[in-house]
Design a protein around this nucleic acid. Structure first.
Lengths: 244, 244
DNA sequence: CGCGAGCTTGATGCCGATCAATGCATGTGG
DNA sequence: CCACATGCATTGATCGGCATCAAGCTCGCG
């Protein structure tokens, strides 16, 4: 068998028009022609190893990033050192929107596994979206969706109990994974109990205990970070007020 | 004394270029010429009586609203009826950004006192911001600022204790009032203890008790909704981890 | 093989929720 | 103008959920 020329990932053409995430990512709803306009803008990718930061709070803001592969968390840190996970991002989701307001990032974005992102230079996005109405509108929708998502998290943090929070979190994760073609019932958590706890406003022990409780009740199976959802409907009941 | 002709507010010319809020509102950072372009877009005002809603969750989204006078709250409601105040808006702040994502509003906006808003038809805002780079950029900054604000609320809800939450809330309110030319030390709350509690993820009794505690400690004076801040620095200490 | 990061589980305590009563303003109708 | 109702706020007593403290446990990895 003759050896093929080595694959050099860096040289791959980065092109939204041929990306399998285009139905989830920035290009949603754009025509074929419009998407091809994006190809000129999204010219580079960046690889981020597990544990490394894509950007940090305080860094100057230049670009947005679309997750191509991998998994991220974003964290805010208060002056007194307290910190809070504000979100988990997977393929097709945008990172960096926080930076637009002050030209500096206000959160840390950390890769929870080896990841790749597409770099979207922000000034180019602004000028392209002046030309292409659909792109402009799509971008606004993405920002608005982030605001709506944040409101949902506030509801969760402000008025739900531990079990309800974890159940809501798991259902949200599985929905997003399912939209990406993964199983809706089986998943591997990319984050620690502590990170889940930070996101949900709980301590890691409470997260662990709640997983165990769900397991005892037959709602799911937990083996470390491997989760099998056995009764999605049961979890949904927990999210609402099932005091079971 | 001769009677003056009656003032008919509806006929006042609505003009961003002559609005005293232009340094706080959408026009921030725009040149005189650019602001005059806004005058054509922001053509109408709407009056909302105390207790009435400007829009409701589920309403179709057409316009953004800039608070001109008065005070609003926004609430999300879960399917099970639980609800959560997601923000309080005062003069110069924008309402309705949540609606862009799905063309329907996802929160209720309720006036907490008799209020007036400027109506900003969203399709006109999009087309104007295709023409005027500074407007486009300013609008993006406002959306991004909302996202950053939401992250701050998540930090508060996820990792602060009752006293810290209330202190942070009061300092935030006074800062915003001060930016509008009001005293930084004396304010009248436009919302009930229950609404504060909902926003902060606390019960109204806890809010009330915490006010009393701050008063006992000499940090402020409370007389129903009248608040006098005596030691802003003391409140700031509470926001960080003063276990006092 | 043994170390360490992450996870589980138990015992205890505290913060804020809940339940309940009273107080205080505003407004309405007699 | 007062009596009473109503909505909101305060304060007390008790309870419960989650945090905290503390031990082991599991698993991947050098």
């Amino acid at each position: 068998m003759t050896t093929l020329p080595p694959i050099r990932p860096e040289t791959f053409r980065v092109a939204c028009s041929s990306c399998n995430l285009r139905e989830l990512c920035l290009p949603v709803g754009l025509s074929r022609d419009d998407v091809e306009q994006l190809d000129g803008m999204v010219a580079t990718r960046r690889t981020v190893a597990r544990g490394d930061t894509l950007f940090r709070s305080g860094d100057s803001f230049q670009s947005l990033y679309a997750v191509r592969t991998g998994f991220f968390k974003t964290c805010v840190t208060a002056e007194d050192g307290r910190d809070q996970v504000t979100g988990f991002q997977m393929a097709g989701e945008l990172l960096g929107l926080d930076g637009i307001s002050t030209d500096r990032h206000s959160v840390d974005a950390v890769a929870l596994e080896d990841s790749q992102v597409c770099v979207i230079p922000y000034d180019q996005l602004e000028s392209l979206s002046r030309e292409f109405t659909t792109l402009q509108h799509q971008f606004h929708k993405i920002m608005s969706r982030e605001i709506v998502r944040d409101h949902g998290v506030m509801l969760l943090l402000g008025s739900m109990r531990a079990e309800e929070r974890l159940a809501a979190f798991l259902l949200n994760l599985t929905q997003r994974l399912q939209a990406r073609g993964f199983s809706g019932s089986s998943l591997i958590l990319r984050m620690t109990r502590e990170e889940i706890g930070s996101y949900l406003g709980l301590k890691l022990e409470t997260v662990s205990r709640t997983f165990s409780k769900f397991q005892d009740e037959g709602l799911l199976e937990v083996k470390q970070r491997q989760i099998h959802i056995l009764q999605p409907a049961g979890l949904q009941k927990v999210v609402n007020g099932a005091t079971a």
